[in-house]
């Protein structure tokens, strides 16, 4: 399957990405390409620069060097919301939900940019505004159903368990109707059952909805099971790339993880 996906066009192309914070070089000359419809994983020890790569793609950080092309278009220097409009959605590592809102409103607010009505229609809540709201609600309900959140629609997200909040993170990203989904450690802190559910969701998102997924995860079992290809970062430098089976046997990768024991994971 991985071979087949490689035939598809490149959707995300990262070249020579370097991002530093003062004295710390978080990533150095990182390059990789993600094909349409792939599940592509980025792994590496803590502090390796994985989240930094995501923040550069989302436009939250502006890399000092390098380029990021999405569907052929340079996105370095674009504002985060513009990048989101292109179809790049993000589920955050540390839960960054809108705490004062219900699950439903979290999802609706992520869909906001797809609703074209303006201030005056909004104040009067007539015609186009109502139609657009109903359509958005329809689409958001599909996401809610897809991720089995029906019971929590009207629950304020602050009151949900950690595992559920992680799932709402994913749901909120999905509500944006993305082409590319960036998922940062979706199963950290989850139990086995929750992890298996999450794996299912990610696979379904990828296969049924044909959405490209870039995954950052420490759970090697999950990475090995889901990924078409894997990139390994260590101290901000890419040390290996390839199909999961090869990566698991790569001596340099094993050395990077030595002492962390994480590469064994659960599989």
């Amino acid at each position: 399957m991985a071979e087949l996906k490689k035939e598809r066009p490149i959707q995300l192309e990262i070249s020579d990405l370097s991002m530093g914070f003062g004295g710390i070089q978080a990533t150095r000359d990182v390059s990789f390409s993600v094909h349409e419809g792939e599940i592509y994983s980025i792994i590496g020890p803590n502090g390796a620069g994985k989240t930094t790569v995501f923040n550069c793609i989302s436009g939250i950080y502006r890399p000092q060097e390098g380029s990021i092309r999405f569907q052929g278009r340079e996105i370095v220097g674009m504002k985060p919301h513009k990048i989101a409009h292109l179809g790049i959605a993000r589920a955050f590592q540390n839960i960054e939900l809108f705490r004062g809102m219900t699950v439903l409103d979290n999802l609706m607010s992520a869909r906001g940019f797809l609703l074209p009505y303006g201030l005056f229609r909004s104040a009067l809540y007539l015609g186009k505004c109502v139609r657009e709201e109903i359509n958005a609600r329809d689409a958001v309900e599909e996401v809610i159903e897809f991720l089995d959140l029906q019971l929590f629609r009207k629950t304020p997200v602050g009151g949900l368990s950690y595992g559920l909040q992680k799932r709402v993170e994913l749901a909120r990203a999905m509500a944006m109707n993305p082409r590319l989904l960036l998922v940062d450690e979706p199963v950290s802190g989850m139990n086995l059952e929750e992890t298996e559910d999450m794996a299912r969701y990610l696979l379904d998102i990828n296969e049924e909805m044909n959405i490209t997924v870039v995954l950052v995860e420490h759970d090697m079992g999950l990475v090995m099971d889901l990924s078409d290809r894997v990139t390994v970062l260590n101290f901000g430098i890419k040390i290996a790339e390839g199909p999961p089976r090869e990566i698991g046997q790569n001596p340099e990768v094993i050395r990077a993880y030595l002492g962390e024991e994480r590469i064994q994971g659960r599989s």
Binding site: S58, G59, I60, K79, P80, H81, A84, H85, A89, R90, F92, E96, L97, F98, R99, G100, M101, D105, M108, S109, A110, G112, F113, L115, Y117, L119, S122, A123, L124, Y125, C129, E132, E133, R172, M176
Partner: peptide, 30 residues
Amino acid sequence: CAKNLVRSKIGRCFVAIRDRDIAAEAMGIP
């Protein structure tokens, strides 16, 4: 009018910015 604003897109953008401005931006909210 205020109630209409807050139950529609505009109000959700406001609250999103209040609760998590970086996430709001990443969700496409300018």
